[in-house]
């Protein structure tokens, strides 16, 4: 076991998969010589050369679309969107093309493609370098949406995404890149897509979350422990398709559920999670399902005071958890 950062885990996953399989290659803006604006692809250009670590023209639809063509051929492209906020020009390619390739060709063609996109706020990024855009991709059969919150999951899930036979949108929380460190095995391992993970065992309330807010929930849970309540925390890890079984199991465990995400509330992934719980185990609940989410405003303002207001933090999460525990 070695302790590395979240972004190092992502870098390692790409490096190891590129070394293992000649068909894996990276493309995107600034991913080559510069090693990415966040340095996620640092060192890959030197190790694998220009042809496999490709700086593309600044055009997101082409990055996705070219990757789709290469994936259909049988290669394993990892396309980088520099910021999730800039994925919008590529949405047609992702939704109309990558996600539907297998279905529309009756299983003849497929698209083993990974699109990595740094998302989330708390980095003074303003409206267009902070957004959580995951919910809009969580209604697209054919696509898989993954959001790791720890270095272990980031590496294991990215390797699984690269090996997956279908397109995977891989959202990396920017605030986690260097803020979150964790143990990662020295030997090869993978983390399965489509499986949520219990990050903390508890008896009194269940928190279901993903990404940066998982860490807020873990911190809040320590504080709540001192109040005499133990929190059970489920990390969704894959947002689409959701791991319904683990969600229902986690809800049943305590009968009190708080869903937490940075993305805004209305139309967010939390609504779907709440829907699953309502459908499967409503009568086993001891309290209404609560959601703590980002406010329903278009995006995170640049101003520090406003950004702080917008973002969740361990205190806000603690407060919501304590309220539910006392219900």
């Amino acid at each position: 076991m070695t302790i590395i950062t979240y972004i190092e885990a992502i870098n390692q996953a790409m490096r190891e998969e590129m070394a293992r399989d000649q068909k894996v290659f990276v493309l995107g803006e600034d991913v080559g010589l510069k090693g990415g604006v966040f340095k996620a692809t640092q060192g890959l250009y030197e190790e694998f050369g220009e042809a496999r670590v490709m700086d593309t023209p600044l055009a997101e639809s082409a990055i996705a679309g070219v990757a789709i063509g290469a994936a259909a051929y049988g290669l394993r492209p990892i396309a980088e969107m520099q910021f999730a906020d800039f994925i919008m020009p590529a949405v047609n390619q992702i939704v109309s093309e990558a996600a539907k390739m297998r279905y529309r060709s009756n299983g003849d063609w497929n698209c083993p493609l990974v699109i990595r996109a740094p998302y989330g706020g708390g980095v003074h990024g303003g409206l267009y370098h902070s957004q959580c855009v995951e919910a809009m991709f969580c209604n697209i059969p054919g696509l898989k949406v993954v959001t790791p919150s720890t270095p272990y999951d980031a590496k294991g899930l990215l390797i699984s995404a690269i090996r997956d036979e279908d397109p995977v949108l891989f959202f990396e929380h920017k605030r986690c890149y260097r803020f979150i460190k964790g143990e990662v095995p020295d030997i090869e391992y993978t983390v399965p897509i489509g499986k949520a993970d219990v990050k903390r065992e508890g008896e009194d309330i269940t928190v279901i979350t993903y990404g940066l807010t998982l860490h807020f929930a873990l911190q809040a849970a320590d504080k709540l422990e001192k109040d005499g309540y133990s929190a059970h925390i489920l990390d969704l890890r894959t947002l689409y398709p959701l791991d319904k079984e683990s969600i229902v199991q986690a809800a049943r465990k305590t009968g009190k559920v708080l869903i937490v995400h940075e993305d805004n509330k209305e139309g967010g992934v939390g609504g779907e999670v709440a829907g699953i719980i309502a459908e499967e185990c409503l009568y086993e609940l001891d309290a209404p399902v609560k959601r703590l989410c980002g406010p329903d405003v278009p995006a995170t303002p640049y101003n520090g005071v406003m950004e702080k207001f917008f973002m969740l933090n361990p205190d806000k999460v603690y407060k919501a958890m304590a309220e539910l525990a006392a219900f």
């Binding site: 679309g65 070219v66 063509g69 290469a70 259909a72 051929y73 093309e97």
Partner: peptide
């Protein structure tokens, strides 16, 4: 872009 990707 798919054709470009196939060529690549």
């Amino acid at each position: 872009p798919h054709a470009v990707g196939l060529a690549l």
